[in-house]
């Protein structure tokens, strides 16, 4: 079947198999930031934005993205760059494999709620698993970024 997807701002027309998953579609288009960690919609690694809303691309058929706008980290580098340095300053990226999904969902969080509390951050990101960091460093990094954005210093 033919689908039209605006991937990272570029309209693509592609012939696909009807059972193709969105994660496989975006990776086949070179968006390697999108990772598969579990196949059962539990880990959050494959998070992409569909019309600005985070979805698990392992659980969405590419066909369902027909006519929609899909953003992966490849397309949001500028928006991500500002924030991720604060995670790097904690060393909380660790193995990095869960980072893209975490970063995508954090971008979605901060677009929706620019000044979240710790509890709101945890609740929004609860579906993004990380086995390395123990999460606390990620929280410190987000908190430091929010402080910085509020006019504090980036230490």
């Amino acid at each position: 079947m033919e689908i039209k997807i605006t991937l990272n701002g570029k309209l693509l027309t592609r012939e696909i198999e009807a059972d193709m998953l969105l994660i496989d579609f975006v990776r086949s288009e070179g968006c390697y930031s999108v990772k598969r960690g579990c196949e059962t919609s539990n880990c959050g690694l494959c998070t992409v934005l569909m019309d600005g809303t985070p979805v698990l691309s392992c659980s969405v058929l590419a066909a369902r993205a027909n006519g929609h706008k899909i953003d992966t980290l490849e397309g949001l580098t500028a928006e991500a760059e500002e924030f991720v340095g604060f995670i790097a300053d904690q060393g909380a990226e660790q193995c990095g494999f869960c980072n893209p999904g975490f970063v995508m969902n954090t971008i979605a969080l901060l677009r929706e709620n620019p000044d979240p509390t710790d509890e709101e951050i945890k609740k929004f990101l609860v579906g993004n698993l990380c086995r390395c960091s123990g999460y606390e460093g990620q929280l410190r990094g987000i908190r430091a970024f929010l402080e910085y954005r509020r006019g504090g210093n980036h230490e």
Binding site: Y32, S33, V34, A88, G91, E93, G96, N99, P100, V103
Partner: peptide, 17 residues
């Protein structure tokens, strides 16, 4: 404390695996 040498590559989802 220094940033990890691969930090930004990992955080920006570059193809490294």
């Amino acid at each position: 404390s220094f940033r990890k040498k691969d930090a930004m590559q990992l955080l920006l989802g570059k193809p490294v695996y």
